[in-house]
């Protein structure tokens, strides 16, 4: 084995072992976290049902903010995972609801999320972000591939025609690039 390969092997392994040592204990904690977080959220509505829906919506927003998800989970997800528990319901006077009798319904809701649910939530958020970015990347890649094809095609044709149709080829290349750019802009 070459000396450079040996050095490379040792350096890579040492660094990677360092990385592993840094990553492993924390990852164990990440996946094995059993702590449950809870928060109380109030929902408002003209009917008790509206108040409950509002509370769940607020819970979704709170989750997105609290956990820096960059994506807001759907209310169904919270209900399906039984992360919400409705509590006391009440009515109170409100100026906003004057047209509807001057009273609105208030619902107290407790949002509870354990480690497993949090992880699932983060995974979903990441998948969502991944989808968006893949879409963006696909557009970028399409644009880049088209540009490369035009440049490559121009060079090959220019070479093959020895400059007989340089102007024509340049115009065609610029035209194609413009059309592609417009198309991608539209798709964006």
């Amino acid at each position: 084995m070459r000396i450079s390969t040996c050095i490379c092997l040792i350096a890579t392994c040492s660094f990677a072992v360092g990385c592993a040592a840094s990553a492993s204990p924390q990852s164990a904690r990440l996946h094995g976290s059993a702590s449950t977080k809870s928060m109380v959220i109030q929902g408002y509505g003209l009917t008790p049902k509206d108040a409950e829906a509002d509370a769940v919506d607020r819970a979704c927003n709170s989750l997105a903010e609290e956990f820096h998800l960059g994506w807001t989970p759907a209310p169904d997800f919270l209900l399906e995972k039984k992360m919400v528990r409705f509590g006391e319901k009440s009515e109170k006077a409100s100026e906003i609801a004057k047209e509807f009798g001057g009273r609105i319904h208030v619902v107290q809701m407790t949002l509870e999320i354990n480690g497993e649910q949090e992880r699932e939530l983060r995974q979903l958020a990441r998948q969502q972000l991944m989808k968006e970015r893949q879409k963006g990347s696909l557009l970028f890649l399409m644009g880049a591939a088209c540009l490369i094809a035009v440049v490559g095609g121009y060079l090959r044709l220019e070479e093959a025609t020895k400059g007989y149709y340089t102007r024509l080829l340049r115009m065609a290349a610029v035209g194609i690039v413009s059309v592609l750019a417009a198309g991608l802009w539209y798709l964006r």
Binding site: C19, S22, A23, Q26, S27, R29, L30, S33, F67, H68, G70, E118, R119, R122, Q123, A125, R126, Q127, Q128, L129, M130, R133, Q134, S137
Partner: peptide, 30 residues
């Protein structure tokens, strides 16, 4: 592309984030 987000959180014990792993999954350093 894998959906990584540059969280402005320094490595600390409470968030469980280190240089190579975080609650969001695997970090950019990884």
């Amino acid at each position: 592309i894998d959906g990584g987000t540059l969280a402005v959180k320094l490595p600390d014990g409470e968030t469980g984030r280190t240089l190579f792993a975080s609650a969001e999954g695997v970090t950019e350093a990884s």
